[in-house]
Design a protein around this nucleic acid. Structure first.
Lengths: 339, 339
DNA sequence: TTGAAAGCGCTAACAT
DNA sequence: ATGTTAGCGCTTTCAA
């Protein structure tokens, strides 16, 4: 690997000049010199040493994608289709803009903070954090950052977040179920925080507006994790007897449940209707295909990149709290009870 | 961000000493100094500047994962479950070992080579390359590298590759189909190169051994890409009339085809049996669940990391051409024709 | 037990 | 139009 200095020496000129032609600051360089330098650059396949460049400039052309992930839920985070698509979209957008992506996943916020400082990344895209995490992060790290799918308790203006209109989506699909004639609709989730809470609120709002009263037992808490899952699904089988439809907080659960019920003798959607949320890859592959709420994950990643690069280059950010729309996708997993 | 020099100055000692305690080379440092330094490190949350460190040491603690991907096939490579899982496994293993992952995807080998040199990565994991690509890469870049799923024309000893026993897997599942009483078995693939070729050979070998003669028309060429796909599937619908079973070269195709046939009135497996390869996430989610050949993608990633780190640290590599085993997974998409 | 100093490759302010 | 030089933060050799 040839260096600027070596090129300079070979040509008997200064590094400044070489540097100038490398950077196209060719206003003050004679045509002859330019050509000589370029010839050598070609010939020896000069490639800048990023470490040196970054050190000198105190920047890095790296955007970090950091994710806080519980190791039990995400044994392999990228295996999850949502995260895979998101990171894939981020990688692609970054690459097109000439930036590099560095991924860092950990359940320990401290480690993430550490990594960020170590590499002197130009900016950060943060995912999987609670509101508190975000606040802590922001207080520790003084770098451009944009969050994805974070839910803040209050609308804080200094945060940039790319989120989703979870409430509206949940409202829409619940409304759809009601319109199909369902009135006993169970809500299935593994918690009631962040996006899931929003979805829960949307669900309840739709019920309320249609005069259906929500009872606590309508919330079916699903427990992920090898061990508990099976018992939980068995309970669910019993539980469904009181319902004509289930709104699952994610397609992942919807598909899991749909297959389980199906494998245990229930017909979908004849015996029970299932609705999901996200419109992930499984939704259209499963049979009956899943009626769900679509969200554009790739767009989420692209917007996050767009925002972070604006921040990095010091451009003005007009919209700081982006809320992406959702869209109802009617497929086959919900039965029309009345016309 | 505090620097070594600043710590040294505050304590009135040299950077060498500070550096020594940072690196635990504490044999020659007095207990007192050690404590003073550590106190400041804690207090000011010292974090090394990787760019400086790398520049000084001419290494980087970065392992590059580079993938050559046609932009039409992989609009978003990480969205693909196989690649997502692979990269996820690589990321995790690297992280555990204290290395960093940098991803670079491009259809242009030159760009990949460029990126590698730019970042001075310690090692490389290469995926999605043809044999020729590998040779070119190896000739251009003088760095530790391990390939994943590359198929070399000859057994070249200097390459390290983590591959799969495609032939055996294909043989096994074809044999299984034959044992189930199928004799008219179509082979579905979108090409006949690399792994797909191996699978094709395994398929043919099983047929031959059972005295079933292979005819050219038994190879059904599927064309991916929005446009052609639909017409292609329509042909397939007709094509299946001559067969009792289809062995698809990947689960992705198997699932696609299964759903298409199902949506067009065919019953699986009553009217036609379907077998896949890979055992990806779709295989168990689809109904009927897919009989397929399992491969351990996570293990693939882990072994690749293990090998590259050995290479980086100069350890001896005993096995250079790793061929991972496959395993038949019988589910419900294949009908038993005879007992 | 500790320190001085050169150097990694590149950048940029300041000459000339 | 081209050159000099200091410096980015860390490592490492050699000396004290």
């Amino acid at each position: 690997m040839i260096t600027i200095k070596e090129i300079a020496d070979m040509l008997g000129i200064s590094t400044t000049t070489v540097n100038n032609v490398i950077h196209g600051k060719t206003g003050q360089v004679s045509q002859k010199t330019i050509e000589k330098v370029q010839k050598l650059i070609e010939e020896y396949e000069y490639v800048p040493n990023m470490n040196a460049r970054n050190l000198a400039q105190n920047k890095s052309k790296i955007i970090g994608f950091a994710m806080k992930a519980k190791s039990d839920k995400y044994e392999n985070a990228l295996k999850d289709t949502f995260i895979g698509e998101l990171v894939g979209a981020v990688e692609k957008s970054l690459r097109i803009s000439g930036y590099f992506l560095m991924i860092y996943i950990s359940e320990d916020l401290k480690q993430i903070i550490n990594y960020v400082s170590t590499w002197n990344v130009d900016g950060l895209i943060l995912f999987g954090m609670t509101g508190d995490d975000c606040i802590l992060f922001k207080s520790k790290i003084n770098k451009p950052m944009v969050f994805i799918d974070c839910y803040f308790s209050e609308e804080v203006n200094e945060y940039i977040n790319v989120g989703l209109n979870d409430l509206q989506g949940a409202y829409d699909i619940t409304k759809y179920l009601l319109d199909c004639g369902h009135s006993r609709i169970g809500f299935v989730a593994d918690n009631c925080l962040g996006g899931d809470k929003e979805r829960f609120l949307g669900y309840k709002q739709a019920l309320r507006e249609q005069g259906v009263t929500y009872k606590d037992k309508d919330f079916f808490l699903i427990t992920p994790g090898e061990k508990e899952l099976d018992a939980c699904l068995r309970d669910l089988l019993e539980y469904t007897k009181g319902y004509t439809a289930l709104f699952c907080v994610s397609d992942t659960y919807a598909v899991l449940i749909m297959n389980y019920l199906r494998d245990h003798g229930k017909r979908i959607p004849e015996d029970i209707s299932i609705a999901g949320f996200d419109d992930n890859a499984y939704a259209r592959i499963v049979r009956p295909s899943l009626t769900t709420i679509h969200q554009d994950v790739t767009l989420k990643g692209e917007i996050a990149v767009e925002k972070i690069l604006k921040l990095v280059t010091g451009e003005e950010i007009e919209e700081r709290l982006i809320i992406l729309p959702t869209k109802l996708v009617v497929r086959q997993s919900v039965k029309m009870l009345k016309k």
